[in-house]
């Protein structure tokens, strides 16, 4: 009987998780469709919870208080930054451009639109990375052609009050 010779790397076998055959269900798609339609009239529609009064924007079919949000309310197009980051590569502190690949800076911010109780993720334009801060006031910037897509509301700019 041949002794087993201990190998540092043995054979490998392959396989996959064929998630292409999974198909998930989302009531939220139906809710957000209504909100997306309203984009065409430049309106932001959120859904208010009858249990605790929280307003979800974009809408969500259930609330953390276990009620089902059921009242459409209009959300303001101004909001406050609650969190942020930058893609591309900049040094921090001075935020110099010397590091990493070049490219247009993309500032990604979490925005709490006035009249809602939720965070929505957007990009921030017309501002430099070093100007961003938590608590900064921003204003939604609609695209030139509003198509009723979820990313129609993906851009904000500093609110000049």
């Amino acid at each position: 009987m041949a002794e087993m010779e201990y190998k540092k790397e043995t054979r490998s076998v392959e396989g996959s998780w064929p998630m292409e055959h999974w198909s998930w269900k989302f009531e939220s798609i139906a809710l957000i469709s209504k909100t997306r339609e309203a984009f065409k009239e430049k309106k932001l529609l959120g859904l208010k919870c009858p249990g605790c009064g929280l307003v979800y924007f974009p809408p969500k079919p259930y609330c953390r208080c276990m009620s089902e949000p059921d009242e459409w309310v209009e959300v303001k197009q101004q909001g406050t930054i609650t969190t942020y980051t930058f893609t591309g590569a900049w040094a921090y502190e001075g935020i110099k451009e010397e590091e990493g690949p070049a490219g247009e800076p993309l500032i990604i911010v979490g925005v709490n639109f006035d009249g809602s109780d939720t965070l929505t993720v957007c990009t921030l334009g017309e501002a430099k990375p070093e100007e961003v801060f938590v608590g900064m006031r921003v204003q939604l910037k609609w695209p030139e052609n509003i198509e009723g897509r979820l990313d129609d509301i993906a851009h904000v700019v500093p609110l000049r009050e």
């Binding site: 998930w24 269900k25 989302f26 009531e27 079919p61 259930y62 953390r64 208080c65 276990m66 089902e68």
Partner: peptide, 23 residues
């Protein structure tokens, strides 16, 4: 219904029947 809405329904019903609230 999604699994989320199914879970919401049974969780809420079971809590209510036990005299409990989310808080």
């Amino acid at each position: 219904a999604s699994r989320e809405m199914q879970v919401l329904k049974v969780a809420r019903e079971a809590l209510q029947a036990a005299g409990l609230k989310q808080e």
